[in-house]
Amino acid sequence: MTLHRFNGMAIPRTIISGPGCRSQIPVELERIGARRVVVVCGAGLKANTPFIDELTAALGQKLAGLFDRLEPNAPVASIKQMVDQVAPLSPDAVISIGGGVAHDVAKAIAVMVPSGRSVVDFVSRFEPPSTFHSVDVDVEPLPVFTVPSTFSAADVVGGGAVTDTQRGEKLIFVHPKLTPLAVFLDGEVIATTPRPILAASGMNAVHHCLEAFYSKGAQPITDAFAVSALRSLLRVLPAFAQSLSGPSIETCQTAIDAASMSGLTYANSWLGIGHSVCHSLGGRYGLSHGAANSVMVLHSLRFNLEAARDRLAEIARATGIASEGDTDPSRMLIAEVERLADRLGTPRTLSAIGLPAGQFARIAQDVLADPQTYWNPRPVTQTEIVAWLQSAW
Rank of each mutant, 00 (worst) to 15 (best):
G325F: 04
H279L: 06
V156L: 08
S351H: 10
S78F: 00
A102H: 10
P194F: 07
A369R: 13
P347I: 02
E140R: 15
F303P: 02
I11T: 09
A307F: 02
I321R: 05
V137E: 05
I249N: 06
G345H: 04
E54Y: 03
D121G: 01
L237N: 11
P91E: 14
G60V: 06
L55I: 06
L355P: 02
T49C: 07
P194R: 12
T14R: 14
M296C: 01
E28C: 05
S124W: 09
I315P: 03
A307L: 00
F303G: 00
H133M: 11
F126A: 03
S118V: 06
A10C: 08
D68F: 11
T131E: 13
K216I: 04
I197Q: 15
H275Y: 02
A352Q: 14
F151S: 07
A108E: 02
L59N: 07
E324Y: 06
S130N: 14
I321F: 01
P194E: 07
P12S: 11
M203S: 01
D138T: 15
R235K: 15
S96Q: 09
S280V: 04
Q359G: 06
L237R: 12
S243M: 03
A108K: 03
R13P: 00
T193A: 15
A74H: 00
S243F: 01
S124N: 14
T381R: 02
G98T: 12
L234I: 12
E314H: 06
D370C: 13
G286Q: 10
N204G: 10
T251H: 01
G358W: 04
G290R: 07
V157R: 13
V144A: 09
T49K: 12
P180S: 13
R284E: 08
N204P: 01
A357H: 07
A364W: 05
E384F: 02
A205Y: 03
L29W: 06
C21Q: 00
L171W: 01
Q242F: 05
K80Y: 01
E169N: 09
L368V: 04
E384K: 08
F126M: 06
D223Y: 04
F240S: 13
G272E: 06
L340P: 01
L301G: 12
A47P: 03
Q219N: 15
E30M: 09
G272W: 00
D328S: 07
L234W: 06
V174Q: 14
G168P: 08
G60Q: 05
K80S: 09
D138W: 07
S269P: 02
D136V: 10
T131Q: 14
L178R: 12
D121I: 02
A308T: 02
A369I: 02
V119M: 02
I315N: 06
S134E: 11
